[in-house]
Amino acid sequence: MQCRVHLVPAASATTETLAAHIASLNACSSVDGIIAQLPFPSHICRRTILSDISPSKDVDGMHPLNVAAAFDSAEAPFIPCTALGVRILLDQYGISTAGKHAVVVGRGPIAGRSIAVALGHSDATVTICHKQTQNLGAITSSAELLVSATGCASLITPRHVRPGAVVIDVGAAFDASGRLVGDVESQVAEVAGAITPVPGGVGPMTVVGLLLNTFTAYTRNNNVNRYVDSLRFCSLRRGGAFTSLQKQ
């Protein structure tokens, strides 16, 4: 697998020039996957750029057609990478979501919203919270599975967590000392039944999701007679490259 990074200076980039660059990548037969790194500068139209990426090469799963497909079915060709990574993570550790109350804090299209959809496909009862939610702690403390994806450091404290709950920390921010931290305070580990660390938790699993989507794009774009479904939702071997969930 080869990876090329195309850097477009923010100061000189426009929606039109970036769209033209994407069009050239869409037409290139040697390119199987395209990802536009978000967020964009404010003068770049996010909707236009994501819509211009060919759906068959949209390995981030953010083209409107792929978003709709992922909403409709758990077997969509391209599931947004973070949601796919969280699903694989839960599968790896044998954590069933069927019939459980899952609370997702954050409703952004890249993480929170897509994770909520994926959990719904896995038969969880899903509640989505956001910055306008009242009495956040009363809702999150009822969750058997709590996912936080806001990018607000230390938003989730022990009082927000039901004892024994599984806590998935998708957030990433820097504290006052410049250290990378998640949405979840470290003391939550004393309450949770299992918790993902930051860094080293959901981040690596998002990369796994991206690689699986890229492999899917390759097989579909090149008519390779090989099924990727068994790879997509396989359980990763315990004790392997990632220590993504810490059971307490």
Rank of each mutant, 00 (worst) to 15 (best):
M62Y: 11
P64I: 04
P64F: 11
P64E: 14
N66T: 12
A69W: 13
D72A: 15
D72Q: 15
S73T: 12
A74L: 08
E75H: 10
F78A: 02
I79G: 03
C81N: 06
C81D: 10
C81T: 05
T82P: 02
A83G: 08
A83M: 02
A83K: 02
A83W: 00
V86A: 06
V86H: 02
I88P: 00
I88W: 05
L90A: 03
L90T: 00
Q92H: 10
G94N: 14
A98M: 06
G99H: 11
A102D: 03
V104F: 05
V104Y: 02
V104M: 04
V104C: 04
V105N: 05
R107V: 02
G108T: 03
I110K: 04
I110Q: 05
G112Q: 01
R113A: 13
V117G: 03
V117C: 15
A118G: 09
L119P: 00
G120P: 00
T127W: 05
K131M: 15
Q132A: 15
T133G: 10
G137E: 08
G137L: 14
S142T: 08
A143F: 01
A143L: 02
E144W: 05
V147G: 01
V147A: 05
S148L: 04
S148D: 05
G151W: 07
C152V: 11
A153P: 08
R159K: 11
H160N: 08
H160M: 14
R162S: 06
R162L: 05
A165I: 07
V166E: 04
V167P: 02
D169T: 06
V170L: 13
G171V: 08
A173P: 14
L180G: 12
L180A: 13
V181P: 11
V184I: 07
V184N: 04
S186F: 07
S186N: 13
Q187W: 09
Q187H: 15
A189T: 06
